[in-house]
Every structure is written in structure tokens, then in C-alpha cells.
Design a binder for these strands. Structure first.
Lengths: 148, 148
DNA sequence: GCGGAAATATAGCCTTGGCTTCATTGCTGT
DNA sequence: ACAGCAATGAAGCCAAGGCTATATTTCCGC
């Protein structure tokens, strides 16, 4: 360092940012599982562990564990050997996540990312898009659609 | 499901996407640490564990562990009780990550995200931006700058 | 040149989110 | 109706990435 207390402020900002990113990551998986279960419920009326596992690209036990986490968080309910269902809160979360996903994909496409790539990247990106950024995306899509 | 084999294809695509996102997450931390060490080396000539820890917002042992991972991956070198230095590979990675970070931030700002928010979100987003998407961002920034 | 403070390392623990293996349950076809 | 198979659940392992507490080493002031 070049000064006496050269990085106290900046250091704090950095740490803040990384903490936020870590926190976002913590809920990302739950969001994905909730959205997936929402999709399956919409398509088939119920979500079975095997389907969840297949779509998430994980093994059955991993899906089961994830469901347990969802239940613990009050986002899903299930009885042993029965399908999994979202609670009201879970459904709300799923809807929110799905909407956000669409906006992120649309924005990527709008700035010139190929559709296929946009879908791929959005899966990872979406969890780190804050409310403010999402709002900015929405507005950009609106005006750009009008403007074109 | 409504059909016989209704989701084989789509399921595969989903799984692919999630796998990619998980893989991206796995290297995200290494990237962050590498960039951070690169910054500190540029500023101070060396990166000390205490500085790394402070900027990452983690405790010293956590930073030490991360450095061990970096060394294992051939991205950094260090001798006990001495500073940490990036290898050629580590430096390359750090430069790449820093460049990507800038582009992501600039793109967010270009589509209307407030500067502060852009910096915050970029920290999490950047690790999921593929090469293709980054290229699209770059081009968008170029043409939008010219166009304005 | 030596003693104490600061920096670094080590050990051990926790949670998350993967995995495999094995037990149990439910469903289905004959 | 029940045997067998598919699906679910349970148990136990692993690596990553956090933490606290403790030991070690370096460095700096006197």
C-alpha cells in the first residue's frame, strides 16, 4: 500500500460486494428448484422427485435433499412417496423467478446475444440480478421495443 | 406428463444448462481471488493474506485455504509466511476476469442500470457470462458508443 | 539482540450440495 | 393377489468454502 490507511474504504466496499454475491448464491439453488417444480406442476399437475432430478441434472437423492430444504423454508410440501407441491410462497417465488428469467433472456437477446446462448447464460446470471437491475432491464426492453 | 416420452429432449437441455451454471459457480471463487491478488500485486507489489481476506470479506484462514486452492490449480505461488504471487496463468486469468468485469459493468450502465447497482450486481453476474455473450456485450458497447 | 505484537499457518468444526449404495414403498401386470 | 420393478427414502461419503481457536513465525521497536 502507498499510504497509511489506503484501503479501508475500498476494502469495505469490496467485501460488501462479495458478501452480497455469496448471499445471492445461497438462495439460487432454491430458486431453481422452486421454478422447476412450478413448471412440472403446471405441466403434469404434480412434481415427482425423479422428474425434478432429471431436469436439474442431478441424482434422485440430491433432488430429495433439495426438496427437504424447500420444505424447511416453507416453499414446498410433500408426503412420503408422494409428489412434491409448492406452497403459496413457493408458487410466488417460482412465478417471480420465471418472470425474471424471461426478462434476462430477452435483454440478452436485445443487446445481441444469440438466443441459444442467452438461454444458457441466463440460467446462471438471473440469480444475481437485483431488483433495480431488473427494473432497468424491463424499462430498456420497453423503450427499445417502442423505439424500433 | 401428457405424452409417452414428453420431456426427454427438453429435460436434457435443462440439465445441461444447470450443469453449466454449476460448473461456472465452481470456478467463480478462484476467479475472484485471482483478480483480487492481481489487484493487490499491482498496487503493492505483493499480496498478503491479510489484505486478501479483508478485501474478500472473509477471515484469514479462509483466505489461506483459497490460496491453497489457487496453488493447487497452478494459479499462484507462495512460500510459508511470505506473500502470495500469481503465476503466469494466474495473471492471465486475473487480467481476463478484470476485463470481463469492466465490460459487464459498462453494459449494465449502458442499458440503464445505476452505476452503483451495476458494480454490485456485476460481481455476481460476471462469472456466468460466456465468451459469446461477452463478445455480444463488447459489440453492443462499441456500436452504441458510435451511435450516440 | 531480544521480546512482544502482528501476520501467517494449522487444526477442527459446520453447512451446502453433490455423489453412491442400500432399504423400503407403491404400482402394475398377469 | 401378489411378484417384481420403478420410484422414493435413508445413510454415509466427499469437496468446497465458510468459521473459531490455537500454534507458529516474522518483524519491529527498544
Amino acid at each position: 500500500m502507498s499510504d497509511d490507511e489506503p484501503d479501508t474504504d475500498q476494502t469495505f466496499h469490496h467485501a460488501e460486494r462479495f458478501s452480497r454475491a455469496r448471499a445471492a448464491q445461497a438462495v439460487a439453488l432454491l430458486e431453481d428448484y422452486a421454478e422447476m417444480i412450478g413448471d412440472l406442476m403446471a405441466e403434469a399437475g404434480e412434481a415427482r422427485v425423479a422428474d425434478i432430478a432429471a431436469r436439474m441434472g442431478v441424482t434422485h437423492p440430491t433432488a430429495t435433499k433439495a426438496v427437504a430444504r424447500l420444505k424447511r423454508e416453507g416453499l414446498a410440501v410433500s408426503r412420503p412417496y408422494r409428489g412434491v407441491f409448492l406452497t403459496e410462497a413457493g408458487q410466488t417465488l417460482a412465478d417471480h423467478v420465471r418472470a425474471r428469467h424471461r426478462i434476462v433472456v430477452d435483454l440478452l437477446i436485445a443487446v445481441g446475444v444469440p438466443t441459444e446462448t442467452a438461454e444458457l447464460d441466463a440460467e446462471g446470471l438471473e440469480h444475481h440480478v437485483s431488483t433495480q437491475t431488473l427494473a432497468a432491464f424491463k424499462q430498456y426492453l420497453d423503450t427499445s421495443r417502442r423505439g424500433d
